[in-house]
């Protein structure tokens, strides 16, 4: 079965992105597939490459990067949510004349249409909200 996963919460301010990661790993371990993970609302903070957590705390953002890259799963951060919250790739940083980009490796900034497309085409959609 093919899953779409939606994440509304970022690291530390909620448990949503950690729960979603555990769920995503269990989906693959159970022999199912994931068509896309869509980060919306504060979930886009997961894609911030500048996060530097203390060593004794789970590096959730990096774990997501490794999960996405290692399993070739699309991690999409909503562009409107990102721009509001200061998560930028080089294109957007240039467009808005900002001092730098901070999208983490493995994440892609894209539009809300990716959420709808993933939801329509998946067998199941699971949202991790805040």
């Amino acid at each position: 079965m093919n899953f779409a996963i939606v994440v509304h919460g970022g690291p530390y301010s909620s448990q949503a992105c950690l729960s979603a990661l555990k769920f995503a790993k269990a989906v693959l371990a159970s022999g199912h597939s994931i068509n896309r993970v869509f980060f919306y609302h504060d979930g886009v903070y997961t894609a911030n490459s500048l996060i530097a957590p203390p060593q004794d705390e789970a590096p959730v953002s990096r774990q997501w990067q490794e999960f996405g890259t290692g399993n070739k799963i699309e991690l999409i951060a909503c562009i409107a949510s990102c721009l509001r919250r200061g998560i930028l790739d080089e294109t957007e940083a240039g467009r808005y004349e900002k001092s730098g980009s901070n999208i983490a490796p493995g994440f892609t900034i894209s539009g809300l249409g990716q959420l709808i497309d993933a939801s329509i085409n998946a067998d199941r959609v699971v949202t991790f909200g805040v």
């Binding site: 769920f23 269990a26 371990a29 159970s30 199912h32 199941r124």
Partner: peptide, 12 residues
């Protein structure tokens, strides 16, 4: 466990 959660999702 999360694997049971995934199974419930497939049954739903």
């Amino acid at each position: 466990d999360y694997s049971d959660f995934v199974s419930l999702c497939t049954e739903a």
